[in-house]
Design a protein around this nucleic acid. Structure first.
Lengths: 350, 350
DNA sequence: CTGAAAGCGCTTACAG
DNA sequence: CTGAAAGCGCTTACAG
């Protein structure tokens, strides 16, 4: 069994050409091309050709310190097989911008899982450091890990707003607060006075922001807040009836579908009897993510999360951080969500 | 303007712990753990923790050690936005198996593009070496790059059969030849005697294999070969009429749709007047890739490419290669494609 | 114009 | 048990 033939190095090329290794490097990185005599240059180039030399990027990058690698860490699978394919638009944007900026992408998936979720720190070690910096995403966040990451001053940018008591988190999020307020206004303009908010996700930033938007809008119109946190659509409908709500803002696409189908089973028509607006979904014009999500015959009134742009902006923020530049727009960015005027918010029943 | 965050080196950790840099390395790669005194080890581990040190893979790799990183290189975008989303099932399989084996994934996307395609070698430089080995995929392959890759003896596995004059390529492909033969038999069993093959892709291995399967089946039944290579569906139909074909094997889903709609425009019904079988598509039971591809009302008779499994098997092959193990099943693997008996192949018109 | 040398961060024999 | 040193392949000042 023969040992694998070694890779050609500059030193070997130099030996063949009868020059020093440094001269080979000079010819390869010929910015100061003037300084190599044509004769020597020819000899070296001939040796380069005959050996089929290719630069070993390891040596080059070690010398230059930056690996030009961006990490991507998500608490769930990166290439999801689920119907909702939540991540794809983000990843699309990340890939696009990383490619444009000449970075490779490192997907951290090796860590093993605890409770089905990945972890940054595996037996006390942060694997992310392999990359120059890292984009983090995932609906589930580990507060402790986040704090530790900040402590270590490892450069990272979160996709989605994140707060930590340990310091200032860099993020690119979507402005749920404003968008929720706008949907409230939308319902209000249609004539609704009793507008409820249905939250299904937990106590995370996304839920908090939507709630804040809802409360702000209710305050403006001097209306009482009607917030429901309930998983069972039939119970939701009972609450809707009990509170005599005519419009509902729902923070999940799937829940909106569930409420609608439960309602229809109970003879409540959407939107004639109950208007519903969905608090967020992907922009189908920016990617095909929408088409791969739960197919719906309903043209929902909702706002769109600019996932693709969030990906590109996060990469741009990170590379600026890596370059020692403080981004002009700051390191906490909330992108606006466009309102999609669907058909599920109409005038309330008289 | 803040300076770019410096990365911690072993030397700095050593300084803090008051030991030599080599001791830090020893603690990190603690195989011979016996040789470091508990006291020193503790001091070093404390310094490691407080600095948040992580190894620089370039240094490690330059020194010749593995990083447990698998590269993924594709000639097109990894996270595609196109409707067909061809890659996702592969990537799903790759991610799944890499995670199971404790490897991270390095996506090589930084190279810049020539004619819209990525390149392994960018001005003579091979970036893949950062990874321990690499999975290559992409419908477009560069013959020269493939040869060069073989020359360098860099460990890689192709997804899809690839041949090179420069040596033996490791691959995990789909057995198009057998599957095409089976679809021919399918049409034959339905009563067809004049079965044509419509190829739209170029002169690549996938096309060659399908053609081989078709020719083999025709030979068995002593029928003449009727091969069409044509992009315009109307011209295809003219040929079908001219050759009096009653069944068509089509190597592209999109082309099958196009022929069918052209046919319907000309009053030719599929399958009553013309049976059509599609040579290959994803298995929807293994991923949701199918749902995000061209939506079709037709339940095509076709075979399914086991993309997900191709991904997992490719990773397994590669890690075995990296471990110095010759895979029992060899390094050139063709996976069987399941036939999906749809509704587009029926008895020919009498 | 060219060579010798330093050093990027790391691992691994080799001495003490 | 620990430190000093060599060397992986490369780029870049620095001397000649």
């Amino acid at each position: 069994m023969s040992s694998p033939p070694r890779r050609i190095t500059q030193a070997e090329v130099a030996r063949i050409a009868g020059v020093s290794q440094a001269m080979v490097s000079l010819v390869l990185n010929g910015s100061d091309s003037l300084r190599v005599s044509p004769k020597t240059r020819n000899r070296i180039e001939e040796a380069l050709r005959s050996t089929g030399y290719t630069v070993d990027i390891m040596g080059r990058r070690l010398r230059g310190k930056s690996n030009r690698i961006l990490g991507v860490f998500s608490y769930e699978s990166v290439f999801p097989s689920g119907v909702a394919d939540f991540y794809r638009p983000f990843l699309l944007g990340i890939e696009e911008e990383a490619e444009a900026q000449g970075f490779d992408l490192m997907l951290f998936i090796s860590g093993g899982r605890v409770d089905g979720r990945r972890r940054v720190y595996e037996k006390g070690e942060n694997r992310l450091g392999i990359a120059d910096g890292c984009i983090l995403l995932g609906r589930h966040t580990d507060r402790e890990e986040l704090a530790r990451l900040l402590d270590e001053r490892f450069p990272f940018v979160f996709i989605g707003r994140r707060e930590s008591s340990a310091g200032r988190v860099s993020y690119v999020g979507a402005d749920y607060t404003t968008a929720t307020r706008e949907l409230y206004e939308c319902a209000w303009a249609a004539g609704h006075f009793r507008i409820g908010l249905l939250s299904v996700s937990g106590e995370n930033e996304a839920t908090i922001d939507r709630r804040a938007g809802y409360l702000a809008a209710a305050r403006v119109h001097r209306r009482q807040a009607n917030m429901i946190t309930e998983d069972d659509p039939r119970v939701v409908l009972a609450q809707v009836r009990a509170r005599r709500l005519t419009a509902l803002l729902v923070d999940s696409f799937a829940m909106a579908e569930a409420v609608r189908s439960s309602a229809s089973a109970e003879g409540i028509r959407v939107p004639e009897d109950l208007s519903i607006a969905v608090l967020g979904d992907s922009d189908p014009t920016q990617s095909n993510a929408f088409s791969s999500e739960v197919p719906s015959e309903v043209d929902w009134t909702m706002f769109r999360i600019p996932r693709h742009e969030m990906g590109t902006r996060a990469v741009r923020m990170l590379t600026q951080l890596l370059g020692g530049v403080t981004p002009a727009e700051g390191t906490q960015l909330l992108l606006p969500c466009a309102i999609a005027e669907g058909t599920t918010v109409v005038a309330p029943p008289t």
